[in-house]
C-alpha cells in the first residue's frame, strides 16, 4: 500500500533520511520509532509530498508521490502533531472546508462528527479545544474522506492518559476495518501495544524492521520469567544459576532472566527443584529493550 524505495533527503551535508526502503502492507499498522532527529517526521513528509526527496521514490497504492501527488494523497488521511487546521473556524466549519475540497456531501461531516464524538463542540472555534479534543478533530479530518491509509505523526504525544486509552481503542477499531496505518511515535509502550511491525530509524537510516517477537529473537535478548513462590528459602537464585539462568528474589517473586534458547531447560529445572510455585508467567523483551539494544548497536 505504501512504499519507500531507496528514499533520501539531504539538507546540505545533513542526511535527514538516508536510503530508506520499506513497504507497509495493506491493513498493516507499521510504527516508525527512533530517537529525536532520526528522520521519522521527514519520512512522513516525503510521503505526503510536503518535501521533495533528494533521491529515491515514495508511492501510495502505486501512485508516485512526486509525479502523481494528488492521486497518492487521495489514498491518505494525515494527522500531524499539531492537529488543528483553522483556529477561527468552528469544528464543523473546519470539517466542512475539507469536505468541500474532497467534494464530499455535508452529511459526511455530520457522520464524522458523530463518529469522533465531537457533537458537543461542533460549533466551537477550533482554537478553544483542549489537547485531546483537538486530536479527535485532527483524526476526524484524517478520516473524513475515508481513505484506505492513515499517516499519524506522534498522535498521542499531547494527550492525557484517558484520551490516550480511547485513542488506542479507536486505532484498534480502524485496524479491524482494514485501514493501513503508518504511525510515527517515540512512546514505545503504545507502539508495543498497537503495531504489527516496527521500523527503527537511527540517524536517518532504517536499522531494523520486523514484528516485535522477531526483533527480540534477532537481538537475542533474554526473556523474563516471574515465579511467585508460596515460601522462599533464599537458595533459589543459586539453583537457577546451575541451570544457566540469571535470577534474583524480589519479595516472594523469583525474577528469572533467560535466553530464549534456554527457556525450556530453565522451566524444567524450576519444576524439578520442587519449589512451591504459586504462579508463573513469562514476558517477552520490551520494545524499549529491543530499541535500546539496536540503537546501541547502530551507534557503535
Amino acid at each position: 500500500m505504501i512504499t519507500f524505495m531507496q528514499i533520501s533527503k539531504r539538507y546540505g551535508t545533513i542526511r535527514a533520511v538516508d536510503d530508506v526502503s520499506l513497504v507497509v502492507q495493506p491493513g498493516e499498522l507499521l510504527a516508525l520509532v527512533g530517537p529525536n532527529g532520526a528522520g521519522k517526521t521527514t519520512l512522513l513528509r516525503l510521503l505526503l509530498g510536503l518535501i521533495a526527496p533528494s533521491g529515491g521514490t515514495a508511492s501510495v497504492a502505486g501512485y508516485d508521490v512526486q509525479h502523481n501527488g494528488a492521486a497518492a494523497r487521495r489514498q491518505l488521511g494525515y494527522l500531524p502533531q499539531r492537529a488543528v487546521l483553522y483556529g477561527n473556524l468552528s469544528v464543523a466549519e473546519n470539517l466542512a472546508f475539507l469536505a468541500a475540497l474532497h467534494a464530499l456531501p455535508l452529511q459526511r461531516v455530520a457522520d464524522v462528527i458523530a463518529l469522533m464524538q465531537l457533537d458537543a463542540v461542533a460549533q466551537r472555534p477550533a482554537r478553544t479545544l483542549s489537547g485531546g479534543t483537538a486530536q479527535r478533530l485532527g483524526l476526524a479530518q484524517a478520516l473524513l474522506a475515508d481513505p484506505p491509509a492513515l499517516v499519524l505523526d506522534e498522535p498521542t504525544v499531547s494527550l492525557d492518559p484517558q484520551s490516550v486509552a480511547s485513542f488506542k481503542q479507536l486505532l484498534r477499531t480502524l485496524q479491524g476495518r482494514g485501514k493501513t496505518i503508518l504511525l510515527s511515535s517515540h512512546i514505545l509502550g503504545d507502539v508495543q501495544e498497537l503495531a504489527d511491525r516496527v521500523a527503527i530509524l537511527h540517524a536517518g537510516r532504517l536499522i531494523a524492521i520486523d514484528s516485535i517477537p522477531a526483533l527480540a529473537q534477532r537481538c537475542s535478548l533474554p526473556e523474563q520469567i516471574h515465579v511467585v513462590l508460596a515460601a522462599v528459602s533464599g537458595d533459589e537464585p543459586e539453583l537457577l544459576a546451575r541451570a544457566g539462568a540469571e535470577a534474583h528474589l524480589d519479595g516472594d517473586t523469583l525474577q528469572v532472566q533467560v535466553p530464549l534458547a534456554r527457556k525450556p531447560a530453565v522451566i524444567q529445572a524450576l519444576l524439578h527443584a520442587g519449589l512451591p510455585i504459586r504462579d508463573l508467567r513469562s514476558s517477552s523483551p520490551s520494545l524499549e529493550a529491543i530499541f535500546m539494544h539496536l540503537v546501541g548497536q547502530a551507534q557503535h
Partner: peptide
C-alpha cells in the same frame, strides 16, 4: 501554525 501542512496533505 501547521494549517498549511494539513491543507497540502489534501489531494489538491
Amino acid at each position: 501554525e501547521g494549517a498549511l501542512e494539513v491543507l497540502l496533505a489534501q489531494p489538491i
